[in-house]
Design a protein around this nucleic acid. Sequence first.
DNA 1: TAATCAAAGGTCAGTAAAAGTCAAATTTTG
DNA 2: CAAAATTTGACTTTTACTGACCTTTGATTA
Lengths: 151, 151
Amino acid sequence: MKMSDIITAHILNMLEQSEYDTAEIQRNEFAALIGCVPSQINYVLSSRFTPEHGYVIESRRGGGGYIRISRVRLDKSSALMHIINSVGNELDSSTARILIENSRQAELISKEAAELMQAAISSPVLHEIPPIFKDSFRAAVVKQMLLALIN
Amino acid sequence: MKMSDIITAHILNMLEQSEYDTAEIQRNEFAALIGCVPSQINYVLSSRFTPEHGYVIESRRGGGGYIRISRVRLDKSSALMHIINSVGNELDSSTARILIENSRQAELISKEAAELMQAAISSPVLHEIPPIFKDSFRAAVVKQMLLALIN
DNA sequence: TAATCAAAGGTCAGTAAAAGTCAAATTTTG
DNA sequence: CAAAATTTGACTTTTACTGACCTTTGATTA
């Protein structure tokens, strides 16, 4: 396996562990741990953790220096999160449909995702559960599916 | 026997062995093994493993580079329809999860679609409906969502 | 306080390791 | 024989890795 892939995997793993999508390393120490030359860390960061890839790098030199890698939430994510939060515990049929259409219009979700969401709350599915639960079910499905698109 | 046929046979054989219809080679190494010039691998790939023939090629240059050949199913729709038909009126949690994972592995559905499907039948959603309805609900959701991907 | 030192991280250019391209030469096929 | 397919290798581009040297920062010392 390539050194750069190993380094990438390590960082990704740290980000995964982290609650705030942030990993902090000390370059020399980290390089020694993995067994590569320090400058290779920079290579990996600049080739695979760029802003285009959705990451932000901050660092500090000198004693007690560090390199911090953060996964940034794209704007879409926060917009979606906003929508999710606006959905209460119940969601009726037409509001749900409009919400999905609007998200699609705003390009927050793909055409495929929109179709999948409509399918998940379509009549054949609702037919399987008692009427009393429909609105809370719709709310839960829509929220969970939008949430899946953020992660 | 022609060199290009030998190369083709080797690749086909690797695909045959592979569980997920994917073969990965290193061009120089593979060429040396077979006893041909490296660029001939490209010739074979571009003349016999094209998308029209049902294959997708991915590659990476540089140290540790590779060429990956994958056989893609052209007939995704009928494969999906087959799966839909195999689902009865009830679907338990782990069978559903495996079904989605397999569809994903077989590249019948996108990563996003797989995540959306898992989200649609995740615990927070199921929590909204009485236990007795869960299995029939799962079956309906999965079928409707896969159906949406066909249309 | 100013000068100095040590401990980080940053940069860059050079080398190596792949894969890609293309056109000329050769072989196969109809 | 003529056209199509195959083979080859010289040259290009991309990606990975390394080490020498540079800059920044914080601490210590005269």
